[in-house]
Design a protein around this nucleic acid. Sequence first.
RNA 1: GCGAGUGUAGCUCAGGGGUAGAGCAUCACCUUGCCAAGGUGAGGGUCGUGGGUUCAAAUCCCAUCACUCGCUCCA
Length: 509
Amino acid sequence: MANYEEIFKKVVAHAKEYGFIFQSSELYDGLSAVYDYGPNGVELKNNIRKYWWKSMVNMNEHIVGLDSAIFMHPTTWKASGHVDAFNDPLIDNKDSKKRYRADVLIEDYVTKLENKIEKEVKKAAKRFGDSFDEKQFVSTNGRVLGYNAKCQSIRQRFSEAMSQNNLADIKELIEELAIVCPVSGTKNWTDVRQFNLMFKTQMGSTADGATDLYLRPETAQGVFVNFLNVQKTARMKIPFGIAQTGKAFRNEIVARQFIFRMREFEQMEMQFFVRPGEELKWYEHWKENRMQWHLSLGIDKSYFRFHDHDNLAHYANAACDIEFKFPFGFKELEGIHSRTDFDLKSHQEHSGRKVQYFDPEINESYVPYVVETSIGLDRMFLTILSHSYKEEEVNGENRLVLSIPPQLAPVKAAVLPLTKKHGLPQKAREVMSLLQADFNCQYEEKDSIGKRYRRQDAIGTPYCITVDHQSLEDNTVTLRDRDTMGQERISVNELHSTVSKKVSLRNYL
RNA sequence: GCGAGUGUAGCUCAGGGGUAGAGCAUCACCUUGCCAAGGUGAGGGUCGUGGGUUCAAAUCCCAUCACUCGCUCCA
């Protein structure tokens, strides 16, 4: 196959052409980095979610589910660190096209000044030897005094500007200090802009009575604030987990690569609560467990790898990604984080209520530690879609097939009368009615049989069931396999159980 | 967000100041009947959007939106 970029483009085009994914609001020229799922897309997406949920919740008696609201009390996001940690003032250099955090540029500048002070002090210390008194020197030396005062005034001005949200003054400061871009060496700066990754909205219809709310940037916090509710009502004992799927929203500066990075996306997260000190054991357990889940979908393990985080986020003491080899390279698909007791403890502090678990085994109350698994449903969708897209040559013709794992395929079986005549459609409808309550089926009688097979291949339908003249005589049909294109003739009576063997989720759990 | 490129029918594209074309796809009918593209006919576009220049703009200019690539950010 050609280069990966070409293939990715084809996958994107294919997704639209066959009703998997449309750009949001396309009628109005589209909305950046927001996408809609079409008829086949929603089936596939639902199937992936269901597969995750069943294997995570239903097959695991120590994990229960939750569906918390997108809106949460604003303090939630103070407690989680989202409000403070993601409010960086950014500035671009127009020549190098590099982007910097304005606070970092200024801090670097101040640090340089401080280095100068240190140098002066060291030099003086060498010169005066034992008689050198640093305090005395610093308070009397004009140069050092000047540097010191400057550092202080810069810092003060910066923090004042930040607290007043005065971005123009921060730019002015950068210009006054004549800070240059480390790459281009120029002072050709854009304005300073604030990027907050959370979407803001208001609750309450009158302007003065409205409360500012955020759309949740992750589903996890809904689990944390419900920890005690769930633990008590479901009578869970540590270690146990709470799983949740749902939409999350991030105001990405640049969101691209199709559905890989969207502003509105869906997460499938599980928070596992453990005894303090046991978190790393469980972290390893879930690393392994999640990788196995991915491999259970039949994708070769060379497409996956772990990526351990070196720079840990503010809440974690161990973290890694499971990366998948997308057409545009290895990229994060799922994260496994040991979040310590950061979240529960923080909610305990901000709410003023105890968020603790009494462990009867050790007769102790404690704030549990958390190991989180967090996967993007849309990314999983893209994993399946891009990996299953295949161009094959059959009898000198191109065949486009989506080899989607059968249990995830949007359409499980297509029922096709060989011709539109001689009562074949009637018989086909009969066959259809035997299956459609349990499997998503399609009925098609238009176009030649070969063309219909190819159409089903293109949306990844595992089975095509063809009703021909013999069907009327002996109640048999042919069952065509998507991957081998081989056919076998089977009795209509066996159809349901045969199809079920291959496409039912239960056979893969 | 910055820079470059792109935007004409569902898709792939041609046209290049005088008021829109092809192939494929779609729909109807006929024909064939187990691995796509046989026949006949039909529908579908104010050429991304808004403004300007002009007697006249899809075509030239400006703005804007979206997409692609590079940079940047990413819990």
